[in-house]
Design a protein around this nucleic acid. Structure first.
Length: 468
RNA sequence: GGCGCGGUAGCCAAGUGGUAAGGCAGAGGCCUGCAAAGCCUUUAUUCGUCGGUUCGAUUCCGACCCGCGCCUCCA
């Protein structure tokens, strides 16, 4: 079966390909008015896994993500903090980039700042005006959605019941129609603004994504990702803007990531269940645990975050790492077992098939763990030979090229390797004379330094860092 | 009210018109001086409820119940 994704636009799972094997992809990035929480990261780990899988399937990526560094909340909070826009947003932009880096989220080819693209947004608004899609009211420019009959096609909302031209009373805005949205906001006292041909003011939120996406990716994108909550109105408005200008289909595939809840409830400050990556770190969880947890549930399925789930992720990762260590450390007998090669082949194709099916990571992991169990069993029985090593390591490497969790972030070992080896040798001598008390004492000492020992059948002792 | 998603073992979760992947946790066992790691057995006669279609439905259809999201800013 070919690679396929569920497309919000058509509400169907569709085969994916591009003419030139280049994927033009846009991801709605963060609004940098605070530290990102773990729910936000689901929306960024998803496109990361998507990127990695597309590359594994031979595509070249041209991926753009925006940083929204001008909007109402930013203005509100920066004023409150007594900081300039740039002073205020740069803190959270840096934090976001650091967090996503520690979560091993690959950097898109372009990370673009909204405030650095004001001219592009002005031009987009002007083009919409030329095409009769806008009107000005009290200095602000609005998009008149009655000029875009297809409005609602992404969110599958029917807006035909809303009367075009019916004046809507609204405390804040003076719009002709309730669904019209602002493209350019007239300047207000004490707020940052730009003096431009379309007036003194600042951009509306929606226009930045359309303008920047088209600047870097052209008129038509292959994939656009974002959280489900952005489907309406943000992405609907992006379509109205871009297609209002070009008359061409803006995006072929709209992919939306479901939300994360915490203890079955929406994250909110009042419930005290908003967690950041730093919070998890303080509780002893490394970033890859969150990465695994968020990646293990298919992106279109709601995910309920619990600390038990996070612990399970840690244990699962450890199982995979142990397997990798075993492959590295075990002395294998000569030869190649065809059955083991077949297992690797079956697991590999099951993994591919699962990922091709709209990134079914849960099923892909099922293939991985089944393979690990069977191969551990073969290692126990000696049915796994030297010649089977490469296919096993290759499969594990493929898994890790997508999930990227095998490399430990924190090496909690607080002892030099030579010293560890010396103690292991001393323990071996103690064991030889059945001085188990001394042997256990040494093992305890090493454990206190974050070192876990494993005695193997052939009398060797391996060590590994303790899990946090 | 409109649009959309979901209800599968203690928890997370995959899946199919033909009789329930995988992970975590629990229990028992093998291995081990003891551990660690690993393996084996065990844990859903059953997939929200009630009807229907079918030789056969968890999987299709209908109704209902429950949870959630969006419809204003939101990943």
């Amino acid at each position: 079966m070919p690679l396929r994704f569920y497309n919000t636009l058509t509400q169907k799972t569709e085969e994916f390909s591009t003419r030139d094997n280049v994927v033009r992809m846009y991801t709605c990035g963060p609004t940098v008015y605070n530290y990102a929480h773990i729910g936000n990261f689901r929306s960024f780990i998803f496109p990361d896994i998507l990127r990695r899988w597309l590359r594994a399937r031979g595509f070249t990526l041209k991926h753009v993500m925006n940083i929204t560094d001008i909007d109402d909340k930013i203005i509100r909070d920066s004023v409150k903090a007594g900081k300039s826009l740039d002073e205020f947003t740069s803190v959270y932009t840096e934090a976001f980039l650091a967090d996503t880096a520690s979560l091993r989220v690959e950097r898109p080819e372009h990370i673009v700042s909204a405030v650095k693209h004001i001219p592009e947004m002005i031009e987009a608004v002007q083009q919409l005006t030329e095409r009769g899609h806008t009107y000005v009211s009290e200095g602000s420019t609005y998009y008149r959605i009655s000029t875009f009959p297809e409005y609602g096609k992404l969110s599958h909302n029917d807006f035909s019941g809303i009367r075009a031209g019916a004046r809507v009373d609204n405390d804040e805005y003076d719009k002709d129609d309730a669904r019209d949205f602002v493209l350019w906001k007239a300047a207000k006292e004490g707020e940052p603004s730009w003096d431009t041909p379309i007036g003194v003011g600042r951009p509306g939120w929606h226009i930045e994504c359309s303008a920047m996406a088209m600047k870097y990716l052209g008129d038509q994108l292959d994939i656009h990702t974002g959280g489900v909550d952005l489907t309406f109105p943000h992405h609907e408005n992006e379509i109205a803007q871009a297609e209002g200008i070009t008359g061409k289909q803006f995006v072929r595939f709209w992919l939306h990531a479901e939300h994360l809840s915490v203890d079955s409830q929406k994250m909110s400050k009042s419930l005290g269940n908003v967690y950041t990556l730093r919070d998890l770190g303080e509780r002893g969880f490394p970033p890859e645990a969150l990465r695994y947890l968020l990646g293990s549930v298919p992106y279109r399925k709601k995910l309920n975050f619990t600390f038990d789930g996070l612990k399970a992720a840690v244990t699962s990762i450890e199982r995979l790492r142990n397997f990798q260590l075993r492959l590295w450390n075990t002395k294998l007998t000569e030869g190649t077992n065809p059955a083991a090669e077949e297992r690797a082949r079956v697991a590999d194709s099951a993994f591919d098939e699962a990922m091709d099916d709209d990134l079914n990571t849960a099923e892909a992991l099922g293939a991985v763990f089944e393979y690990v169990r069977e191969t551990n069993s073969a290692l126990d029985s000696g049915d796994f030979r030297v010649g089977n090593g490469p296919s096993a390591l290759a499969f594990l490497a493929k898994f890790d090229s997508i999930f990227d969790v095998l490399r430990p972030t924190v090496l909690s070992v607080s002892m030099a390797p030579t010293e560890i080896e010396t103690l292991i040798a001393e323990r071996a001598s103690a064991k030889k004379v059945r001085n188990f008390a001394r042997a256990d004492e040494i093992r305890k000492e090493l454990a206190d330094h974050g070192v876990v020992l494993e005695d193997t059948k052939d009398g060797k002792t391996n060590w590994k860092p303790a899990q946090s």
